[in-house]
Simulated assay, not measured.
Amino acid sequence: MTATTTDVLTFEILDSAEILSLPNIRTLVAGYTGRDEAAVQHHIDELAAIGVSPPPQVPMFYPVELATVTTARQTTVTGAHTSGEVEPVILRHNGRYFLGVGSDHTDRELETVDIGDSKPACPKPVGRKVVEIADWDSFDWDACAARSWVDGVLYQEGTLGNLRTPGNLLRTFAERLGDSGEDLLCFAGTLPLLNGKFTPGHIWDIELTLPDGRTLTHTYTTEGH
């Protein structure tokens, strides 16, 4: 699904003055992206126990509109049962690739009814800073570390070593949905919750630390209505 809105996402390359402006970008949330198939199935079984239907395929790619993705520090959500989770974000612009950090903020009540409907129901915050990745095959994806906090409490922590690599994810995406090389933004998966429970909150801090020590961060707040 390619967004047809006139909205434009703008990013800044870390340690550079270069600005990326991405209008009409293809925007996706990838789910069930764990590398260990047994662990993914265990997660699917856990979700089924709380009423979430199993996915028809693994991994899954859920289209969201460009207007859903935001670099704003304040977002509006509907209902009291929404929560975020830190994710690496793969960007492609004019054939160049970049890595960012975002939060797959989701309506957890709607998720038990239809995951596809729950993905665009909340804004998808992303950090404004990104880093360019010249070659995914030589980039040490597994050594990247991600963390999130909700209202100051550590919520997730770990490396990306259990997630599908960008190369694998992009190849699967192309095989399933087709890929003409257009600009792309893809949330690439998340880490287990430290307490095992989705936790609503007001202030969300997310970070992704690269193997060379550089860190991408974003903080956003949610307001209900």
Rank of each mutant, 00 (worst) to 15 (best):
K197A: 11
F98I: 01
G127L: 04
I206N: 01
A67R: 12
T2E: 12
A188K: 05
Y220S: 03
T4F: 07
V130M: 04
M60T: 15
T221I: 08
H218C: 03
A143V: 09
T75W: 02
V52G: 06
V89N: 00
H218W: 07
T172V: 14
H105A: 01
P200F: 05
Y220L: 02
T219M: 13
F61M: 07
W204G: 00
P54Q: 03
I133C: 07
A146R: 07
R108C: 02
V150H: 05
T215D: 07
E132A: 10
F173M: 14
K197Y: 11
H43G: 01
P192D: 04
T33W: 08
H42N: 13
T217H: 11
L154V: 10
L22W: 05
Q74K: 14
T112L: 03
K119V: 00
M60H: 04
L91G: 00
Q41L: 05
D135Y: 11
Y62P: 01
V29N: 01
T219I: 12
T209Y: 09
G158M: 14
V89R: 00
L208I: 07
T71F: 00
F139P: 11
G201K: 03
T71A: 06
E157I: 09
E207A: 13
L194D: 08
D135R: 12
G189W: 08
F187Q: 01
L208H: 08
P88S: 09
T4D: 12
F11N: 01
I44H: 03
L9N: 01
A188H: 06
V69I: 11
W141Q: 12
T165G: 14
I115H: 09
S103I: 04
N94C: 10
D183R: 02
A80P: 02
A3V: 04
L110S: 10
D137F: 10
T165A: 14
L185V: 06
D212A: 10
D117H: 14
S180M: 10
T27Q: 02
L28C: 05
A49I: 04
L191F: 07
G213K: 11
Q74T: 15
P56I: 07
A67E: 14
G95N: 04
V86L: 05
I115S: 09
V58Q: 11
T112Q: 13
G34R: 12
I44Q: 04
G224S: 13
P56G: 10
G181L: 08
T172Q: 15
G95H: 06
T27I: 02
W204F: 15
E207V: 08
S148P: 10
D151E: 10
P23E: 09
T68R: 09
P211G: 09
T209P: 06
L47V: 01
T71M: 02
E18L: 11
D117K: 14
V131R: 05
T71W: 00
L160T: 15
S180D: 15
P55C: 04
P123S: 02
E37M: 14
